[in-house]
Design a protein around this nucleic acid. Structure first.
Lengths: 237, 237
DNA sequence: CAGTGGTCTAGACCACGAC
DNA sequence: TCGTGGTCTAGACCACTGC
């Protein structure tokens, strides 16, 4: 067993819903029925069902049962941390990453504020363009502490930095604060993007924290207006 | 008692964190300690702590304890359904709602698609401008089935439609799908907003569902580029 | 080693919906 | 009335952290 019991059950049920074993507006078997089928306790079943609910697979109704929803498949983040490579897998278009800059710097005032860094800290600076269908439409600027990431190569940056950090370095990324605004384009945008005449750009700022709640990375993702799309599933309170 | 035990404990702890009883990077009492203090079981304490974690108040660490975070206060949606009135309370500026249109219509093709409506359905159409500091910067377009909402007045629209629906009509709004994009401004935007020369606009489309998973409302919120801001707290997977 | 949080259990009582 | 999901309990075992 690689997973918990409740995660196993969650993935099993989620898979069956995605594959159409239960269709939208079908009712799931009752909790007591699932207890029997999976030979487990009710609280464990309920953990799995709550995950399904949070992720938009089902709607639970007291006294009635759990209804299967037709959401649950998205082509863009469900309001979570999603790296470019994960995104690209969901896009049917050819996708390319261009590493424009890769160096170790001392933080400037802005960066000091963003990363709570001091003049002595060494910071990796990575600037990459994301090309889709021959146009560079996203500019990703990454800054993170060198003390956590001793080495970083062009090849890693062309692949997925997140995969390297999590799978190779075993850094545990736990949460992020995100802020989305629209700004005027600057010289850097003009240099590294095919702006197509747009003079504004969607800016997504990300503050990424590790497992022990230390701020580790600041990321700025700049999207051309016409190619920007953000999808979200939200439960009321 | 108005609430559950675990919600009571959650609100109690969240309040104490917000008021600084525990400061960022303090450790919360252990789960076993909280069990004693609140005279309850550990699973109930854990439900409360998991809520705190989801809402960005704490970071739990296996074998160590729960760390208090300095996030948890936001001035814009935490990636949830937030009505204008709730937003306005967090803004220190004078805020006004102008009801531009309020009528019952038959759905046009676009609306039929969005609301899964038929030609026979009657739909409330509400168009409102949101004015902050003397400028109309948000255009809210609301469409919902008349069968759920028999009466609707200008006064209600100037106040908060959500409050009316939930508190007066007891409709239970349970979840929403949200999509954010940027579009070119149209004549309606020009008519009802002070665009200040901007020729693009941030469009937030909202599909709102009731407790029984029926689609009830379609909302489009159009924000002037320079005034748009969206903040989000996200946990990794 | 003791203390922490993560998982799991078997049972209980409740509020709600449908018949 | 019965079946449903929502809450709560007391106890168990585990994995991880720190000393």
């Amino acid at each position: 067993m690689y997973e918990n019991k409740y995660l196993t059950i969650y993935h099993d049920l989620a898979g069956k819903i995605r594959q159409g074993y239960w269709k939208p507006y079908d009712k799931l078997p009752s909790e007591n029925e699932l207890v029997k089928r999976y030979r487990t306790s009710r609280e464990t079943i309920r953990k799995a069902l709550n995950l399904l609910s949070e992720h938009g697979y089902i709607q639970k109704m007291k006294g009635k049962g759990s209804l299967v929803l037709d959401v649950g498949k998205y082509d863009f983040p469900v309001s979570g941390l999603v790296s470019f490579k994960e995104l690209a897998q969901n896009m049917k278009q050819p996708v390319k990453t261009i590493v424009n800059e890769l160096e170790v710097i001392k933080p400037d005032p802005d960066l000091k504020r963003y990363l709570h860094a001091t003049s002595k800290d060494e910071i990796w600076k990575v600037i990459r363009s994301r090309e889709i269908e021959g146009e560079r439409i996203i500019l990703d600027k990454d800054f993170f502490y060198k003390k956590y990431v001793p080495t970083l190569t062009r090849e890693i940056c062309e692949d997925s930095i997140y995969e390297y950090l999590e799978k190779q370095l075993k850094l545990k990324i736990s949460f992020a604060k995100k802020e989305m605004t629209v700004e005027k384009v600057n010289d850097e945008d003009r240099k590294y993007l095919d702006l197509n005449g747009y003079d504004h750009i969607v800016v997504v700022k990300n503050f990424v924290y590790l497992d022990d709640a230390t701020l580790f990375q600041y990321t700025e993702s700049r999207h051309r207006l016409d190619k920007f799309r953000f999808v979200d599933f939200a439960r009321r309170k």
